Amino acid sequence: MKKFIITLSSLFMLAACGNSQPVNIPVKEQTKPSPNEAVAYFAEGCFWHSEIVFQSLVGVRDAVSGYAGGDDKHPDYEKVCTGSTGHAEAVQVFYDPSKISYSTLVAAFFASMDPTELNRQGPDEGTQYRSIAFYRNNEEKKTIDEEIAKLTASKKYSGKIVTQVMPFNTFYPAEPYHQEYIKNHPGNPYVEHVSIPDWLRFKQANKATFNFKS
């Protein structure tokens, strides 16, 4: 479960991070896959957040919430939340390489979360919220390793990058109610005070780096 508890002392602080104005949440495009469409897989904490991060990038058609990185062949949300399946909340990203490169997706992945947090991301704790960059071939692994090396050399973070780099195995789509969750549940306290503010900060900090959809 999302471990987000609002105490009386923090309620007013969180309210300041809420959204007083309507926000245009990016959703999957209803267009058909392009002939050269590619797929990438990432885990970076709550998959609700990951969905809108990738779907906000030009060239990404859809980001599907799901589970990856574990051994259980029949994962579901309740089991994954226990941490017993080995899975992490992940997204399956469908993109057009002629419009956005894999290296750009990797850069956006690292820029949209804290890669130094071990088995957690923000208020969410547990191995199911660990960050993982999945690769499907040696070229993708090289791209991920190079991004980690670049970030390490830049000394952007005081701590060590602990994001796992793992070969992709199997992706299991999450339950239907998790798909486009933020768009469909903008009033959810977690969405309003965590997911949307995190995404808006990501966009603001990287508006000169990535090509965002309007």
Rank of each mutant, 00 (worst) to 15 (best):
K2E: 04
I5R: 15
I5Y: 15
T7Q: 12
L8P: 08
S9A: 05
S9Y: 09
S9D: 12
S10T: 14
S10L: 04
L11Y: 05
F12G: 04
F12W: 12
C17K: 10
N19G: 07
S20I: 01
S20L: 00
Q21Y: 00
I25Y: 02
P26N: 10
P26C: 07
P26D: 08
K28C: 08
K28G: 14
K28T: 11
E29H: 11
Q30V: 14
T31M: 07
E37Y: 05
Y41V: 06
Y41P: 13
A43T: 04
A43E: 13
G45K: 03
C46F: 10
F47V: 01
S50W: 01
S50R: 01
V53N: 04
F54A: 12
F54V: 11
Q55S: 07
S56T: 05
L57G: 14
V58G: 01
V58N: 01
G59R: 02
G59M: 09
R61V: 00
R61D: 00
V64I: 14
V64D: 05
S65R: 03
G69M: 08
K73R: 04
K73D: 02
H74T: 13
D76F: 02
E78H: 09
V80D: 15
T82N: 11
G83E: 05
S84C: 14
T85H: 07
G86P: 08
E89I: 13
E89R: 14
E89Y: 10
V93Y: 02
P97F: 00
K99C: 08
T104E: 09
V106A: 11
A107Y: 12
A107L: 11
A107V: 06
F109C: 15
F110C: 04
S112Y: 04
S112M: 04
P115T: 08
N119I: 14
Q121P: 09
E125S: 15
T127D: 04
Q128M: 09
Y129Q: 06
Y129E: 13
R130L: 07
R130G: 12
S131L: 10
S131K: 10
A133H: 03
A133C: 06
N137C: 08
N137K: 13
I144L: 11
E146I: 03
E146M: 09
I148W: 12
K150P: 07
K150Y: 03
K150V: 01
L151A: 06
A153G: 00
A153Y: 02
K155Q: 15
K155H: 12
Y157I: 04
Y157D: 06
G159P: 06
T163W: 03
M166H: 09
P167Q: 07
F168L: 04
F168H: 09
F168G: 05
T170C: 05
T170M: 10
F171A: 08
P173L: 04
P173D: 03
P176L: 00
P176W: 01
H178R: 07
H178Q: 10
Q179M: 00
E180R: 03
Y181Q: 12
P186M: 06
G187V: 11
G187S: 13
G187Y: 10
Y190I: 04
Y190L: 02
P197V: 03
P197C: 13
P197K: 08
P197N: 03
D198Q: 03
L200K: 14
L200S: 00
R201G: 02
F202Q: 13
F210E: 00
F210Q: 02
F210C: 09
F212D: 15
S214T: 15
